[in-house]
C-alpha cells in the first residue's frame, strides 16, 4: 500500500454535493481501457467537451487549480458504484487528499487502499478553506498532516480530523493489509473449524 504522511499544496474547491463515481470515471472510459487511460480520465464528464477538448469552465481545468493535490468537496462525495477506478482517476489528476463533509462508504474504503486520504470536516469548515484559497489564488496552501490529524488552513488555522487508528497506521507505514490479516491466520482457521460444526450448511464442498 502507498504511504501517506503529510502533504502541503493547493486545495481546489469543487463543493458540489453527491458527486458519484460515474461522474469521476464513466463506464465508457473504464471498460476495455488501460490503467493509463483511466488515470487520464478523472472527472471526464465535467473536464472534457464532447469533442475531447478541455472545458475551460470546469474548476480543475483552471490554471490556478489544475494539478491541485487536495480536493475540497461536497456532501456524499464518491457515492454510487463501487468502482475503485474512481480513486485511480483522481490520483491520475494528482489528487492525494479529498476533504468532504461525508463520503460514499465504498469509495471511502477504496481511498485507503490506494494511499489516498479521505478527510471528513464539517461543510462550514470546508467552505472557509475554500474562501481562504480563493482569497489568495496561486499563493495559498493547505497542509494535511496525518500524524497529527490536522488540516492547516492557508491562514494557519488548525482543523483537527478523525481517522480510525488502524487506517491511520496503515497509511503512515504503508502496510500491506493482506499481510496484516494473515498474521491472524490461526484465528481464521480456528473460527472456520468452529463454524463448520455450528453451521454445516454454509460449508460447501469443492
Amino acid at each position: 500500500m502507498n504511504r501517506f504522511t503529510k502533504l502541503e499544496g493547493v486545495a481546489a474547491p469543487f463543493l458540489r454535493a453527491n458527486v458519484d463515481t460515474d461522474m469521476i470515471i464513466p463506464m465508457t472510459r473504464l471498460v476495455g481501457t488501460s490503467r493509463a487511460d483511466i488515470e487520464a480520465s478523472g472527472f471526464a464528464l465535467f473536464r472534457f467537451n464532447g469533442d475531447g477538448t478541455e472545458n475551460p469552465d470546469f474548476v480543475l481545468n483552471q490554471p490556478v487549480w489544475k494539478g491541485a493535490p487536495i480536493l475540497l468537496a461536497g456532501d456524499n462525495f464518491g457515492c454510487g458504484s463501487s468502482r475503485e477506478a474512481a480513486v485511480w482517476a483522481l490520483a491520475g489528476m494528482g489528487i492525494r487528499v479529498v476533504i468532504a463533509p461525508s463520503f460514499g462508504d465504498i469509495f471511502y474504503n477504496n481511498c485507503f487502499q490506494n494511499g489516498m486520504l479521505p478527510v471528513e470536516l464539517p461543510i462550514a469548515a470546508i467552505e472557509e478553506l475554500a474562501e481562504e484559497m480563493r482569497a489568495s489564488p496561486g499563493n495559498a496552501r493547505v497542509t494535511v498532516d496525518l500524524e497529527r490529524q490536522i488540516v492547516v488552513s492557508p491562514r494557519g488555522r488548525e482543523l483537527p480530523f478523525k481517522v480510525e487508528a488502524n487506517r491511520r497506521d496503515a497509511l503512515l507505514q504503508g502496510l500491506d493489509d493482506i499481510g496484516v490479516t494473515l498474521t491472524h491466520r490461526d484465528a481464521i482457521a480456528a473460527w472456520q473449524a468452529k463454524d463448520r460444526a455450528a453451521r454445516p450448511w454454509v460449508w460447501l464442498k469443492a
Partner: peptide
C-alpha cells in the same frame, strides 16, 4: 459491495477488515 483491492483481500483471506 466492495472495491477491487478489498476483493483481492477477500479472495486471498476469506475475510475483510
Amino acid at each position: 459491495g466492495i472495491g477491487s483491492s478489498e476483493l483481492v483481500h477477500a479472495l486471498a483471506t476469506q475475510t475483510l477488515a
